[in-house]
């Protein structure tokens, strides 16, 4: 498989990475949606930036750490951030929404410090913030592939349990599901998805891939399964459309993917409203 991946052109690598992200983000997004936690993607993406900044800084300042791919440090920070969010939600039981701004601002603050210490070019940070499909290296693609497979396995294993907990935590627990374990696992899952999406979509835009496709599919879905399947369709359409547009017009990929996603969502809302106007039930 390594051979096969090595033969890909830079553009093919980018597209493959995009397709993986377009598949997984909406699946996790569907669970975040029903648990009313989509905002967590914003907090985690910013703490992931801290991790990436730390990775870049370490590889610059110490020769023996030069091999570090900042995506890995990003993943570690994302994991820690995700668990901290869970912890903060327990501490501020009655004001759980506090957890996100706390993590988000800590993430940006730390990032600002580390970025000002490091000597990277403006372009490198720009790529991390807004995503760049053409700079997906073989190493990055491998990272996305592996985290993607792990995330898919976790979802396949715990789809039922996660759905049951999202709908009714008390019942889930009396049907023999460990809510605590599942929440931990879900935190890991979100962290994986956020950090794997970083390179293509960018830190500031990753929340969009988690939110927009399911926001669009929500318009038509009666069942949870339809939210997931519709979300994947909308997600992949946004990715493919966005990549094509950004390639032809030479515009930042992340931006184009997000704008395509927003357009899809608006179209979905309009179609739904037209349908209810014509056929009010």
């Amino acid at each position: 498989m390594m051979d096969l991946l090595q033969q890909l052109t830079f553009l093919e690598r980018g597209i493959l990475a995009g397709l993986i992200i377009g598949f997984i983000c909406p699946v996790v997004g569907a669970f975040l949606l029903v648990r009313r936690m989509t905002i967590i993607s914003e907090g985690l993406s910013h703490i992931t930036l801290t991790g990436i900044a730390a990775g870049v800084f370490m590889s610059q300042s110490t020769a023996f750490l030069g091999f570090i791919n900042p995506l890995y440090t990003g993943l570690i920070f994302s994991l820690v951030g995700s668990l901290l969010v869970e912890k903060l939600r327990q501490i501020y039981k009655h004001f759980q929404e506090l957890a996100i701004p706390i993590i988000l601002s800590s993430g940006i603050g730390l990032s600002a410090i580390i970025i000002s210490l490091s000597s990277s070019s403006y372009t490198e940070w720009y790529n991390y913030l807004f995503g760049s499909i053409v700079t997906v290296s073989l190493n990055d693609l491998l990272f996305i592939l592996i985290t993607g497979i792990v995330a898919m396995l976790l979802i396949a294993a715990f789809y039922k349990e996660l759905l049951s907990i999202s709908f009714d935590q008390e019942f889930a627990s009396t049907s023999g599901i460990s809510v605590k374990k599942m929440n931990f696992l879900f935190a890991v899952l979100i962290a994986l998805v956020i950090s794997m999406s970083m390179k293509v979509i960018g830190i500031l835009l990753v929340g969009a891939m988690v939110t927009l496709p399911v926001a669009a599919s929500m318009q038509f879905a009666k069942s949870f399964r339809q939210v997931v399947v519709g979300g994947i369709l909308f997600g992949e359409t946004a990715i493919i459309g966005g990549i094509m547009l950004s390639y032809f017009f030479n515009i930042a990929t992340g931006g184009m993917v997000v704008v395509t996603g927003v357009v899809l969502m608006i179209v979905a809302v309009l179609i739904k409203q037209l349908k209810t106007n014509i056929n009010p039930s």
Binding site: L163, F167, A172, S175, A221, S223, F224, Q226, V227
Partner: peptide, 13 residues
């Protein structure tokens, strides 16, 4: 977004 079928199946999860 869950159907009656999906909600009832949660009892088996």
């Amino acid at each position: 977004p869950a159907t009656v079928f999906e909600v009832v199946s949660m009892g088996l999860y």
